[in-house]
């Protein structure tokens, strides 16, 4: 326990950094990933906004981002990060590659959830005279809502996992702390402690997400 108390300010700082990185990733996933995934779904053949060219461009983009080994993506994006944030080092800089992967990852999960909505629902919506926006917000999202939340839960846990390697660009975070203090300084106690924190965090997110998505699912 002594070590933990001794390093408590560093621990708090790293937890804060993890929250910033993961929080911004979630925001990016919702603000950009959700519309992107929705558009991927809608631009498919036979759908509301069918557009073969745009679909294949976006589909390929998502695949490319997701096929990068994540550390390489971080390095690859350094010039871009520097352009956006002004520096490639630090927690804020780390949020750039994290956001990119989050957007691609969640977009795919959103697309999948929307594909699960029976097509007949969309036809019913159109037959009622719904506009395209109404079809999306009043029908598609309502029917897919538990899948969208469950997907965001899964994604969030992946974001936490991705954020643990951001030490490479000085992003900090709990994972970085565990490696630098726990592993490299042979403080097994500190390493175990951080791992326990991570487990609790992931468990809490998964349980909350599963519960919420179940509660919102009235389909059976």
């Amino acid at each position: 326990m002594d070590k933990i108390i001794e390093y408590q300010s560093e621990i708090w700082l790293s937890i804060g950094q993890t929250f910033v990185m993961v929080g911004i990733s979630i925001l990016a996933a919702i603000l950009v990933g959700l519309p992107l995934g929705t558009y991927l779904y809608l631009s498919r053949q036979g759908n509301l906004y069918e557009n073969k060219i745009l679909f294949s461009i976006l589909d390929t983009f998502v695949n490319i981002v997701r096929s990068f080994p994540f550390l390489l993506l971080v390095v690859f994006l350094i010039p871009f990060t520097r352009y956006i944030i002004g520096t490639a080092i630090g927690t804020m800089a780390a949020t750039v590659p994290l956001s990119i992967i989050s957007i691609a990852y969640y977009a795919r999960l959103v697309e999948q959830s929307l594909l699960d909505v029976p097509k007949g629902i969309i036809e019913a919506a159109i037959s009622m005279g719904a506009s395209k926006a109404q079809v999306i917000f009043k029908f598609l999202y309502v029917e897919a809502r538990s899948g969208l939340i469950f997907g965001l839960t899964t994604a969030t846990i992946s974001f936490i996992s991705y954020s643990t390697v951001m030490g490479i660009v000085g992003g900090g975070g709990v994972g970085d702390f565990a490696i630098r203090y726990g592993y490299q300084r042979f403080e097994t106690e500190l390493m175990t402690f951080t791992i326990i924190i991570m487990i609790i965090l992931v468990q809490a997110i998964q349980i909350t997400g599963t519960k919420l998505s179940k509660k919102l699912d009235k389909r059976s």
Partner: peptide, 28 residues
């Protein structure tokens, strides 16, 4: 769209919104 609001339609598979109650479906 406006004209369709004057033409009701029902389907073999009902196509109700499963995440909305009976009343909310009629409300749509």
């Amino acid at each position: 769209r406006k004209a369709r609001q004057n033409i009701g339609m029902i389907f073999q598979q009902f196509q109700l919104i499963l995440n909305r109650t009976v009343a909310e479906n009629v409300e749509m």
